[in-house]
């Protein structure tokens, strides 16, 4: 439970006074209110909060798949509000890694192809370099023997390992994970968390959204959200424990 890096360097993620409204017909539903935060390289941060508190919305803004209604979202030095759709997509490809709750692998491609896919989109590496990078990652996540299995032939944990490898393969500045353990049993979930912690120790910055106390208990830093507002930017161990207890 240590934060390996100091928080004084230029943050990878910086939000200032961010609001996000959703429009349900003519009704405006505020999802986030005046959120400001920053995340530095090397953190292992969890956004915690009950359902409907705005965790996923916050993660989507940071993940550049949604835009803020008001306020600034700066990712890897880029003000996302200034960017067009195409540039945002480029930013995602260059700087971000995604791990989805339900893995979202390409069903017809095997593990290797799925992991290789972002590299193909980037088009920077040649075939040999790609293979080395992909196999190295599959090894790191412990499923190199399943490289040529398709998602349908893998268990949930194995699929999430493939998804993690895919998120890491471009060596992004930060990996975003939306409830990465939600669809896994507790044992597998724990193993996945341990894997991510291990990867964090090797230098990858992680940002989770979760209400799973197991995830929260392993976080280096917990940002608590309540009703779309930040309740605590760095919750204490007690808070975390209370939160964990509350969740149970």
């Amino acid at each position: 439970m240590t934060t390996a890096f100091a928080q004084t360097e230029t943050p990878i993620v910086k939000l200032v006074g961010v609001d996000k409204d959703y429009h349900l017909g003519s009704v405006i539903v505020p999802a986030l209110r005046d959120v400001s935060l920053s995340i530095a390289a090397g953190e292992f941060t969890v956004i915690a909060g009950p359902s409907g508190s705005g965790k996923t919305t916050l993660l989507n803004l940071i993940g550049c798949v949604d835009v803020a209604t008001r306020g600034d979202v700066v990712i890897d030095g880029a003000d996302t509000r200034q960017l067009k759709e195409k540039a945002l997509t480029d930013l995602r490809l260059r700087s971000l890694g995604f791990i989805f709750q339900s893995f979202n692998l390409v069903g017809v491609l095997d593990a290797f192809d799925n992991v290789e896919f972002p590299l193909l989109l980037q088009g920077k590496l040649n075939k040999v370099e790609r293979r080395d990078r992909v196999m190295g990652l599959l090894q790191q996540v412990g499923i190199e023997q399943y490289a040529h299995h398709r998602p349908g032939e893998l268990s949930g944990g194995q699929r999430q390992r493939v998804a993690i490898a895919r998120a890491l393969v471009t060596q992004p500045r930060i990996v975003l994970a939306d409830e990465p353990t939600a669809n896994l049993d507790s044992k597998t979930g724990t193993a996945i968390l341990e894997l991510m912690q291990e990867l964090n120790r090797r230098g990858t910055t992680f940002l989770f959204s979760t209400h799973d106390p197991r995830v929260v208990s392993r976080a280096g830093r917990v940002i608590r959200l309540v009703d779309g507002q930040i309740a605590d930017l760095n919750a204490s161990a007690e808070d975390v424990a209370a939160l964990a207890a509350g969740a149970h």
């Binding site: 759709e85 997509t89 480029d90 995602r92 490809l93 989805f100 979202n104 390409v106 972002p118």
Partner: peptide, 10 residues
């Protein structure tokens, strides 16, 4: 959607 999130352009 996932491919788009990962960085695939339209």
């Amino acid at each position: 959607g996932a491919l788009r999130a990962i960085g695939a352009q339209r």
